[in-house]
Design a protein around this nucleic acid. Sequence first.
RNA 1: GCGCCCGUAGCUUAAGAGGACUAAAGCUCCGGACUUAAAAUCCGGCAGAUGCGGGUUCGAGUCCCGUCGGGCGUUCCA
Length: 824
Amino acid sequence: MAEAYNVQEIEAAWQRRWLDEGTYEVDNDDPRPPFYCLSMYPYPSGEAHMGHVRNYTLGDVVVRHRTMHGYAVLSPMGWDSFGLPAENAAIKTGIHPREYTDARIAELKASVRRLGAAFDWRREIESHDPLYMRWNQWLFLRLLEAGLAYRATAPVNWCPGCQTVLANEQVLPDGTCERSGDVVTKRDLEQWLFKTTDYAQELLEDLDALDWPERVKTIQRNWIGRSEGAEFDLPVADPHGQPRGDRLVIRVFTTRPDTSFGMTYAVVAPEHPIVTELVTDEQREAVDAFVARVRSETEIERLSTEGALEKRGVFTGSYAVNPFNGRPVPVYLADYVLMGYGTGAIMAVPGEDQRDWDFAKAYGLEIIRTVEPPEGWEGEAYTGDGPAINSEWLDGLSKNDAVERAMAWLEEQGIGERKVNFRLRDWLVSRQRFWGCPIPVVYCPEHGIVPVPDDQLPVLLPDDVEFRPTGESPLKFHTGFLNTQCPRCGGPATRETDTMDGFVESSWYFFRYTDARNEQAAFDSDVVAHWLPVDQYIGGIEQDILHLMYARFFTKALADLGIGPKEVREPFGRLFNHGVVRLGGRRMSKSRGNIARPADLFESHGADALRLYHLFMAPPGDEVDWTSGGIVGTSRFLHRLWRLADPASELAASAVERTTTDADAELERATHRLIARVSDEYERWSYNTAVAAFMEFTNGIYKYVQGESGGSAETLGFAVDTLLLLMAPMTPHVCAELWERRHGTHVHEQPWPQADPALVAEATVTMVVQVDGKLRDRIEVNSSIDDATAGELALASPKVRAILGDRHPAKVVARPPRLVNIVT
RNA sequence: GCGCCCGUAGCUUAAGAGGACUAAAGCUCCGGACUUAAAAUCCGGCAGAUGCGGGUUCGAGUCCCGUCGGGCGUUCCA
C-alpha cells in the first residue's frame, strides 16, 4: 500500500538526520577541492521573513549542487548580532540587549533550520560573542598600530533620532538617516576613523578582476570617485592684483586646468579655515551671516537646488590672482563648494561648468568661453571637447592636449602639480551606542590614548546597565566600566565609551568562519588561504556599497599587516545579488490571511514547496512582489512527484519489464535533454526555468506511463531517478526521502548526472519546408544534414513541386537541419 | 536632466547565435471524476495578432529607429 507523502514528518526527520550525521560539516583538511559558499550573515530580527527564505534557499541550492559535483563546500552561518533594534528594545522595555538578541537569534535560527538549509553549525559566529569581540578588538588594535585607525575631530553626520554619528553611507541622498528617517545634521566631534582612503586606488583597480554584477562594480567605482586633475595656488591679492604681504594663497583643485584662462572668480567653501583671513572688514558682517546660515542648514537644505542662488554665496572682499594670466578675480564663498572634497576651494570657470555658470549669472560675474562650442550650440556651459579659445598659448588645442599642456606648465612654474582626488572618505567607525563592540582604548591624563593590552581583551559590555529614554549610551554613566587604570602607568584612566560600527564585525566574519573556534588567534592564515576568496557570495544589493567596500578594505589591510594571507587581497570572487522580496501591494493583507509568514507556509505546505515556489516564481535576481497563492502549485507538483517516485505507489508499480519501444527511446532522450538543460540552468542561476523544465518533464512522464504501452520499469526508473537527482538541491527533503526509498542511499551523496551528448542531439529531426514562408512539407532528415542536401531534398518534395508549378525558385534559404525556405 | 533595464494569456515567469509546428509552465477561472457534500486530489479545458508605429530580413517576441508606459541607478565631488 502506498504511503502518503507526509510532508511534516519527512522534513523533520531529514533535518534531524542532516544535523545528527553532520552531513554538511566540512573539515579544513577535507581532501575534496574546496568551495566556499557564503550567504551574508543576517541581523537576527527574530522569525524569518521571505527575504531570508529567498536568500538561504539560493545559498542552499548552491551548497548542495556543488557538493554533488564533488566539492568540499564550506557553508557557514552566523549572526550580525550587534545593532540598534536590540538597544531600542532595551530603552523601551529595559530588557538587556544581550538577552533580547539571544532570543531573536534562537527564533531566526529555528526558522532557518526549518527551511532545511545545510550549514556547518560548528562554525557558527555571533558578533556579540565575547570570543568574537576579543578578536575584533585585537584587529582594531593592529589597525591602530599600523596607523590605519586614528582619531580626529571632524564635522560628522549626527542623527538626532539615533543619538549617534552616522557614516556618510548611512545618510540617504535626501539627507535623512537610513535607519530612523530623521534629518541628519552636522556636528564637530572627536571620532575614530579607519584609513580606507589609503586603499582607494587599489579598491578601484581590483574591481576589474571580480566576477560581480557590473551594476555593483559601477556603484563601487562611483563611490570611490577617482578623478585626475591639478592642484595649484592662487595668490590672494588686492583688487588691482597686488599680492598681499603675507603671501596668503588659496589652493584649488581642478580637473580642467585647460580652462584656467576662463576663470572669472574663485570660490572657497564656507567652512574653509582660510575664510577668516580672506574676509575684509566691509564684508565681515555679510560673510558671518552667510557662514552661520550654512552651518545651521541641514544637508537637505544645503544640497537642495531649490534655494535662490542669490542667497547661496557671498563675496569675501578679497581677490585672487589667476596665475595663468595675472588677472585678479573676486573670491566668493558658496555653499556649492564642499570642504570635504579636493582642497575645499575652486577656480570658477562659468564657460565650461554649469554650476559656475549659474552662479556667475546670479551674481553678475563675467563669463569667458575657453572652449569653442560646436556650431549651433545653444546651451549654457559647454563641457565637451573642442578647440581652446581665449587662452593665449593654449588656443587651438583640443581638450586633452590643452589639459596636458596646462598641467605641464603648472609644474614648470612650480605653482602646482598633478593630483588624483577620490570621493571616497575615511571610514568613521565610532558609534555613541551601547550595543556594539567597545573600542579597546583608555584615556590616561598622563599618556593620552593608550591601547588596552592584548592579554586584557576583550573589553566587555557591562550587564548592570540602565538605559535612558534619551537614547544616550549607558556606558557614559557606568562608573564600573568607565573607570580603569592606565595600562602604561597604572594611574586612573577612563575607557573609551564609543563602540564600533557594526560593519567592522562584518568586515572579517568570513575569515573567522574558516577557523571559528580558534582561541589563540583571530584565524589561522593558512586555513584562510585554503578557503578564501569566497567562491560564491550571496546577498541583497542593499549591502553593496557599505559592507562590500569595508570588507574589501579589511581584506587588503589584513594582507598588508601580515595577519591574513598576503595573496588574498579580495574577499569575494563571485557575487550574486538576489532581488528584494517586496511585501507591498494590496495583495498582501492580514484580513485576507495571505500575509507572508514563512512559519505558516512551512506548516501548510512544507519547506520544499516553499523553496521550490521561491525558485520558480521569478529569476533569482529579480525583485518580486510576494504572493502566497502560487505555493499550492509547487506543492501539488511535489505530490505528483511523490506518486511517480514512491516505489510503493500505483504508478511506479504499473511499470513492467518489457522490450523497449519508441516511447521508451523518446523518454530516454528527453531525460538526457533534461540533464543537459538543467545542468546549464544551474550554472546560470536560471532556477525558475529549471523548475519549469521539471514540471514539463514530469507531465511527460505521466503521459508516457499512461500511454498505450505503459511504462517500462527500466526507462521509467532512469527518468525518475534523474529527476530526483536534478531536483535534490532545490527540494532536498522530498528527494532525499524518495531516493532512500528507492535505493537506500543518500541522494545528496550521488554524483551529478551526466548527459550523453549522442542522446541529447536527436538522430533525426523534422525539417520544415516552406515556400515563401508558408509551411508546405515536413521531411524527416538526419540531424547532420548539410545545406545542399537539405535544399535538394526540399526541392524534390512532391508537395513543394505541386505548389511551385512552373515557377522557378529565386532563392533557396537552407538552415539545416530545421528549415528550408524556398523563395520565388 | 543623464545613464541602464523592462513591456509576452487576468497574474508571475519561459521561449539555446532571428526560423516552422498549438509561443510553453504554474497560479487564477471553467468543466469532469471522486465525495452525502465540500476541501484536497486526479483528468481535461478556456485564454495571447508578444505596449504602439516604422524599418532591416526569405523569415522578427528576438535586431535597428521612433513613441508610449513602468522600474532602477545617479545628480552640486570642481
